[in-house]
Amino acid sequence: MKIYPLGVGGAFTKTNFHNNYIIHLNEKCLLIDAGSTLRYSLREAGYHYTDIDVVFISHLHFDHVGGLEEMIMQRFWQFNNGQHSPLKTTIIVHEKLLTPLKSLLSHGLANQGRTVEDFCNFVCLKEKEVYKIEDYSFTIFDTSYTHADGLFSFGFKLASLQSNIVFTSDVKRLKEANIIGQVDGNTVAIFQDVSFTFNGVHATLQEVLDYYPKEYYSKLYAMHYNDNVEQFQKVIDSANINIVKKGEILHF
């Protein structure tokens, strides 16, 4: 699989765009989250909304869902030779998040005689239920209340026959989230949000290093981090973890 980091920054980033990704799975493009910087990060990366086949939404903070309505609208209001040729947006979501997400979208979409379902196809998954994208298996795991109190949130595991990646989304209380429980012998990368300064809803680098066994460090890919990441380069190097960088393609 090929992974294009559209952005790697936190909610208030000014330089790194929001932590959203495009994953190429053979002929399909999977978008991971749709933050409010998506309209800029997609264009900078050379993509268009219509290039996306499937979207996964991890939770409802604005840096993960703030650009979703615009994407849905732009895909729906497509015209070919003057004829309306709508593209519905397929959204993967955990069953717990389906109703809150529909409610959020309904404020902008459920009007003029249309419903949210006129614009979207929802793939609603239960815990450990498998959704196939090309030759890959997509499963969601529940990290609710480990990012922010009272907030539904979810990570995912994406697997081929030979390997898999684990994507935490946003997590503070790693032990409660049981991320290690998602890792197995075929895991080649763990995409982990990391803050290099104290943060009430994101794990710090030290918390990440304390949680994971040292043999996992080389599989860790830090994301959703501070804009001044370069100030922590020595610490990063000594920890033997990887840093995901905006626009730098990863292959697994």
Score class of each variant (00 low, 15 high):
Phe191Ala: 02
Lys219His: 05
Ile236Glu: 03
Gly200Thr: 09
Asp184Phe: 10
Val208Ser: 08
Lys234Leu: 08
Asp193Cys: 15
Ser238Trp: 01
His202Ile: 01
Thr187Ala: 12
Asn199Ser: 13
Ala189Leu: 04
Gln231Leu: 12
Glu248Ala: 09
Asn242Tyr: 01
Leu174Pro: 06
Ser169Trp: 01
Asn228Leu: 05
Asn186Phe: 12
Ile190Tyr: 02
Leu250Val: 15
Lys234Met: 12
Gly200Pro: 01
Pro213Ser: 06
Gly247Ile: 12
Leu174Thr: 11
Lys214Glu: 12
Arg173Tyr: 07
Val201Phe: 13
Gly200Asp: 10
Asn186Ile: 11
Glu207Tyr: 03
Glu215Leu: 05
Leu205Met: 13
Val171Cys: 05
Ser238Met: 11
Gln231Lys: 11
Phe198His: 14
Val244Thr: 15
Tyr221Gly: 01
Val229Thr: 12
Leu205Phe: 02
Val194Ala: 00
Val183Leu: 06
Glu176Thr: 06
Ser218Gln: 11
Val229Cys: 06
Leu205Gly: 01
Tyr225Thr: 03
Leu205Ile: 03
Asp227Lys: 08
Tyr217Glu: 04
Lys245Tyr: 14
Val194Thr: 04
Lys172Leu: 12
Tyr211Thr: 02
Thr168Cys: 13
Tyr225Asp: 04
Ile249His: 10
Ile180Tyr: 12
Asn186His: 10
Glu248Lys: 13
His224Ile: 03
Phe198Glu: 15
Ser238Ala: 14
Phe198Ala: 15
Leu174Glu: 06
Leu250Gln: 09
Ile241Cys: 01
Lys172Glu: 07
Glu215Tyr: 14
His251Asp: 14
Gln233His: 08
Glu215Asp: 14
Lys234Tyr: 08
Glu215Met: 07
Ile190Trp: 00
Val171Trp: 00
Asn240Glu: 14
Asn186Leu: 11
Asp170Val: 07
Phe191Cys: 06
Lys175Thr: 03
Gln192Leu: 14
Ile236Phe: 05
Lys245Trp: 11
Ser218Asn: 11
Ile190Thr: 07
Phe196Ile: 09
Ile236Thr: 07
Ala239Ser: 15
Pro213Trp: 03
Lys245Asn: 11
Gln233Met: 15
Asp170Cys: 09
Tyr217Phe: 15
Asn178Thr: 07
Asn242Gly: 04
Ala222Thr: 03
Gln182Leu: 06
Tyr216Pro: 00
Val188Cys: 09
Lys172Ile: 05
Phe191Thr: 05
Leu174Val: 08
Leu205His: 01
Val183Asn: 07
Ile179Lys: 00
Phe198Gln: 12
Tyr211Val: 04
